[in-house]
């Protein structure tokens, strides 16, 4: 399973006020709200939870092929340690890993099979893949008929998750 999500902390500060009345209640369970409000950095803790939920949404969307919906509340999080967490959705479970820097918070779904991660622009990413995989032509980012992102490597299609916010972009594949 793949699914990732990134939040540019500077842009998020401009775009969202998580302390707006009823905001947290739309996204978080009472336990998650406790985690946010008892944290020494409530905003970063909120975005950690948010990116965990978004990456799980993307992974489950591919796995369970559900139609687009908007209900972050339906995904519940637990922190295992400062990086790893667990996500529950409708009886399904997965693990996530979160990377936090001063500038961004990034989460991705953790797999039994190893996945690759790339931070940077689409063009740099595709260039790197072309060299790495020794491809004749540039790989392309495209979508399945259900709207899920895939990598067209000419000889095969490979699932990919991409995320972009503000100055940051990341790929899991």
């Amino acid at each position: 399973m793949i699914g990732n999500d990134i939040v540019d902390l500077v842009k998020a500060k401009q775009e969202s006020n998580i302390f707006r009345p009823r905001y947290l209640e739309k996204v978080c369970s009472p336990e998650e709200i406790d985690l946010v409000l008892s944290s020494s950095n409530a905003i970063n803790t909120f975005w950690r939870i948010w990116t965990m939920k978004e990456s799980a949404y993307k992974a489950f969307q591919r796995d369970l092929s559900f139609k687009t919906f908007f209900n972050p509340f339906a995904f519940t999080c637990q922190f295992k340690d400062s990086d790893f967490g667990e996500l529950n959705y409708n009886g399904h479970q997965l693990s996530t890993k979160t990377i936090q820097t001063k500038e961004f918070i990034y989460s991705e779904v953790v797999n039994f099979r190893t996945t690759q991660r790339f931070f940077g622009s689409s063009s740099d990413f595709l260039k790197k893949l072309k060299t790495e995989l020794n491809l004749k032509s540039h790989p392309e980012l495209t979508k399945t008929k259900d709207g899920l992102p895939v990598l067209d490597l000419a000889h095969k299609m490979s699932p990919i998750s991409k995320t972009h916010h503000g100055n940051f972009q990341a790929f899991q594949y």
Partner: peptide, 8 residues
């Protein structure tokens, strides 16, 4: 994240 704002 702004979908939450739209709902509110």
């Amino acid at each position: 994240a702004n979908l939450v704002d739209i709902v509110l």
